[in-house]
Amino acid sequence: MSSYKHFIVAALSIGAISVSSPAALQCAPVPDSITLNQNGKLFSPFTFNHAQHIQSIKECADCHHHTTGTLVLDPNCARCHQNSSPTAVVSCKGCHSATPFSPENLAAKRADKQRYHLDKMGLKGAMHQSCIGCHNKMGNGPTGCQDCHPRTKEGAAFYSTNRKGAKPAHAEEE
């Protein structure tokens, strides 16, 4: 039963992309591409090809947990979210804070004694772990910093790129 449902939903989402008619779906519109790192200073913003990822992975839950209403794969998450319906917000940044360690967020976390998801990642961490983790696992896909987002001028200064090969790497330390 569950695998059947799984199949249907997957087929639906692929169909949605291919026909580019998100309105046909119950959930929020599925974008074909997303601009990530929009406010990046050290690395420039770049376009994430959402459609391509949907095509190759075919599994929303790999990235979106249970939020798209698809089958929950992680048995631990399934304990509660087995029958969760799609959430209003699906985007990463809708749930993962860009400033997970700000005083306000830390205070809120401390105040909310009943909170279960105490170890929820920040936006940056969630994205990088998700992308790099999967690319490593799949054995393809970019893993280097600049493979996704080229460094800005500011970024080059930040990483002191002009110092490349100035000396054999910290050999003096030894």
Binding site: C145, F158, Y159, S160, T161, N162, R163, K164, G165, A166, K167, P168, A169, H170, A171, E172, E173, E174
Partner: peptide, 20 residues
Amino acid sequence: PEPDTSFDDPSVFEHERRPT
């Protein structure tokens, strides 16, 4: 101060380093 070599130079991993 500026590092001896850039912060994306992986060759530093050849030796174990310590804070200075």
